[in-house]
Design a protein around this nucleic acid. Structure first.
Length: 578
DNA sequence: GCCGTTTTCGGCCCGACTGTTTTCAGTCG
């Protein structure tokens, strides 16, 4: 059972407890435990086998026992008992925006509404507005929420949300009196998927900024509008939130609205222990209410004796403790990337010629670019025969002779076959400057099988990089069921690099995996796997993922200058074969 | 149900907005 599924069970227990009107802190305990398990970098089954479940933060004896049962038997008697006590469907009802446990319960008790479909009918028959504490407006809001819920299915990919939010922010900067506009929330932390888009603005005239906001191009409707904040729904059905604060408290507000929730809770708890109170309006002395900071985020953290913490780290995964002990990691930055080690061209399934890719890489200021078209087994992706590969190599060498500033590397993304062998012979591999080995098929294999396969590739003396290690697709496909510890251990032992693939729906390794790899001394590369010139810009997403994984520049091979990279590529091979 | 830089008991972040209510509960982030 995967971490995600365990977390889901705990969340469902929390939902059911909430519907029963249980103590809110008990409910919160289950949610917090679920969150912790989702963020674990390691399969929970392994933690269970070590008997270390209760060492996970916010997992105590009681929840540990329930997780253990779940892992051993595949179900939870406690969950099933709760499910018998609460009508099925009510959980779903509670997830309708605007409904919480109380109102969901009321709809059930008084109208017999159990499912979202029931709710739709009740709303259409105007039965909801006659309930106590509901009215015309509540009913209309619920109607909209239900319609939206039936339409909208998934969280946005970071790559979809970022440009949308950046366009809105840019428009506000130009068309309103806002002194500053920033992205906040999970966008600013570069989470891999985004629910709502949060923006923050500084202005002494919030009225005017909110006016501009509600009139942004693409706004379909205004959901809420107060004196300091507003919510709009775009034509695509996305929720965009804006909060406007006075410039003197902008730093405190930015800190607050960037989150994460868990990071802020811990920071506030620490503040209280120091006799301080932190809110979106600043840092205050608890005894006198005197405000002592708020204009910048640096100030806010400084009041706590902490250095500024990069937003990508603010997930309560040890960053506050690290900050307190002055051991925050230096994080890799986009400007440090000197090249891209995986991309595709028209020779296989890419959309651009080698020259077009080169021009794009030059415009990014890169020193090198590896052309890594697919190997033959990947017929769907136009994999190259050995004959075609010789022709491509000749073209790469010709282009290289005409390039003063950028060095093209001869590479290949070689498929790891279902038996673990590589889809290329020794001669083809030897002719490459850089070999990236990747899984593309047989993802349904057992954990043992697929792990053995990948280990064989990592140990292969010609392989430099393991490409998109799990081969997951966010929101569409779980990755292979890899024993990641074994993979990381082997990568550390052989010196084979692991890739952070920057394709927006891959981001594979993910942040937690990358962090574990780095902790084990593994080298990483961040590659875009670009299939067109514009996709080379996905590097930003890969770097963000690395930063969320506490990855420093020295761990990332493609921050190295060309001569160092070439030396490593060469040494890796000779050491392995010698 | 979890947790501990005074604590193994008594807390648990906190403010904005909405709608329905005349002072607040529910929801959200």
């Amino acid at each position: 059972m995967k971490n995600q599924q365990v977390a889901q069970v705990l969340n469902e227990i929390a939902d059911l407890l909430e519907l029963r009107g249980e103590n809110v802190f008990r409910v919160g305990a289950y949610r917090e435990a679920a969150r912790q398990i989702e963020a674990l970098g390691e399969p929970i089954g392994e933690i269970d086998q070590r008997g270390d479940l209760d060492k996970i933060p916010h997992v105590g004896a009681s929840i540990a026992g329930k997780i253990h049962e779940l892992l051993q038997t595949g179900h939870s008697r406690y969950l099933e008992q709760l499910q018998r006590q609460v009508p099925a469907g009510l959980v779903e009802l509670m997830h309708v925006p605007g409904l919480g446990p109380k109102r969901a319960r009321q709809l059930y008790d008084q109208l017999g509404v159990v499912t979202v479909a029931d709710l739709k009918t009740a709303v259409e028959q105007h039965r909801v507005c006659r309930l106590p504490h509901f009215g015309e407006k509540s009913e209309a809001n619920i109607r909209q929420a239900v319609e939206q819920l039936l339409q909208r299915t998934r969280r946005l990919l970071l790559s979809e949300a970022l440009p949308m939010a950046e366009r809105a922010a840019e428009h506000l900067r130009r068309s309103s009196p806002a002194e500053r506009v920033d992205l906040a929330g999970s966008l600013r932390r570069f989470r891999e998927t985004i629910g709502d888009l949060d923006l923050l603005a500084a202005s002494r005239d919030p009225e005017a900024v909110l006016d501009a906001f509600t009139r942004l191009p693409g706004v379909a409707r205004v959901d809420a509008r107060g004196e300091t904040k507003a919510t709009v729904i775009t034509e695509e059905g996305l929720q965009l939130d804006l909060r406007v604060v006075d410039p003197s408290v902008y730093g405190a507000a930015l800190q607050y609205f960037t989150g994460s929730k868990a990071h802020n809770i811990k920071l506030r708890t620490w503040a209280e222990q120091r006799g301080l109170k932190i809110s979106e309006y600043g840092v205050f002395r608890a005894d006198t209410d005197e405000r002592i900071a708020g204009a910048t985020e640096e100030e806010v953290y400084a009041c706590m004796g902490l250095p500024w913490i990069p937003p990508e780290l603010r997930e309560d995964r040890g960053e506050l403790e690290a900050a307190r002990e002055r051991r925050l990691p230096e994080l890799v930055a986009l400007e440090q990337m000197r090249g891209d080690l995986q991309c595709h061209t028209k020779w296989s399934d890419g959309q651009r010629t080698i020259e077009e890719m080169v021009r794009a890489a030059e415009s990014l200021g890169y020193e090198y670019l590896a052309i890594t078209d697919h190997s033959q087994a990947l017929g769907v992706a136009g994999g190259l025969s050995s004959e075609r590969r010789r022709e491509q190599r000749a073209e790469i060498e010709a282009v290289n002779r005409s390039l003063p500033r950028l060095r093209l590397l001869v590479g290949m993304e070689v498929d790891i076959r279902s038996d673990g062998a590589l889809d290329a012979d020794e001669e083809m591999l030897a002719a490459c400057d850089v070999v990236v080995a990747s899984l593309h098929s047989g993802l349904g294999q057992s954990r043992e099988q697929v792990t053995r396969r990948v280990l064989a590739a990592i140990h292969h003396p010609r392989v430099h990089v393991l490409g998109h290690p799990t081969n997951r697709l966010i929101g569409r496909r779980e990755g292979a069921d890899l024993d990641l510890d074994a993979i990381i251990h082997a990568a550390a032992a052989t010196g084979t690099a692991l890739e952070i693939n920057a394709q927006p729906d891959r981001l594979d390794l993910n942040d937690s995996h990358a962090r574990r790899a780095v902790e084990s001394g593994v080298r990483l590369v961040i590659s875009t796997d670009a299939h067109s010139d514009t996709q080379l810009r996905y590097m930003r997403l890969g770097v963000a993922t690395a930063r969320r994984g506490w990855v420093g520049p020295l761990r990332v091979l493609n921050t190295r200058p060309l001569h160092e990279l070439l030396a490593w590529l060469y040494d890796k091979r000779t050491e392995a074969s010698g």
